[in-house]
Amino acid sequence: MKQIKTLLIAAILFVGANQTMSAQAKIAHVDTGEIMSKMPAMLDAQKQLETLSKTYDAEYKKMVDEYQAKLKKYEAESTTVTEAVNTDRSKEVQDMQKRIVDYRDNAQKELQQKETDIVKPLMDKVKASIQKVGKAKGYQYVVDGSSLLLADGPNLTADVKKDLGF
């Protein structure tokens, strides 16, 4: 009787352990940062953004140089002109300052929007590829390995790059 109880308990433990093992999810990881940084379309996008940024920077520098030259000129002439002229010049300088600040703010917003417009479709493409590769390899979960403290499981980064064609 004691042996039957022992065998019964052993059988229950074996069945329970077997079900626990089969219930575990298959998990892999991928480094989306590496994929995005080496993706040819992303490299082209970065060049576009850099060119646009340089254009904005050049225009901003031109406006600041013009502002500084005018300010210097007005300061040098301030003692030789009337109070009314100095008041008008002061308003003109303040308007220039406001235009410069507005230009800088708008340029930053436009750059951020352009970056979002360019990067989102690329990120969607990478995400679709990760899902495709993960499902093809039988994984239930694929996590971004760049934020993991320990990424000891299967790495799908190379497979995703291959799927994307680079």
Rank of each mutant, 00 (worst) to 15 (best):
Q3W: 14
I4N: 14
T6A: 15
T6V: 14
I9H: 06
A10F: 10
A11P: 01
A11N: 09
I12T: 15
L13V: 15
L13W: 11
F14Y: 11
F14M: 12
V15H: 03
G16F: 10
N18E: 10
Q19S: 13
Q19A: 15
A25V: 12
A28R: 00
A28N: 01
V30T: 09
D31H: 05
D31T: 06
T32C: 07
G33S: 14
E34A: 15
I35F: 00
K38R: 07
L43W: 01
L43V: 09
D44P: 03
A45C: 08
Q46E: 08
E50L: 08
L52M: 06
L52N: 04
T55G: 13
T55I: 05
Y56W: 06
Y56P: 00
D57C: 04
A58K: 10
E59S: 12
E59P: 01
E59H: 06
E59R: 10
Y60D: 11
V64M: 13
V64E: 13
D65G: 13
A69E: 13
K70F: 08
L71T: 15
L71E: 15
L71Y: 13
Y74M: 13
A76N: 08
E77K: 11
E77S: 14
S78W: 06
S78N: 11
T80Y: 04
E83G: 07
T87Y: 03
E92S: 09
K98E: 08
R99A: 10
R99N: 12
R99W: 02
R99P: 00
R104P: 00
N106A: 14
K109L: 02
K109S: 04
E110R: 02
E110P: 00
Q112I: 02
T116Q: 09
D117V: 07
K120I: 12
K120G: 08
K120L: 12
D124W: 01
D124L: 12
K125F: 10
K125E: 15
V126M: 08
K127H: 11
A128K: 14
V133R: 07
G134V: 06
K135G: 04
A136F: 01
A136H: 03
A136R: 02
K137P: 01
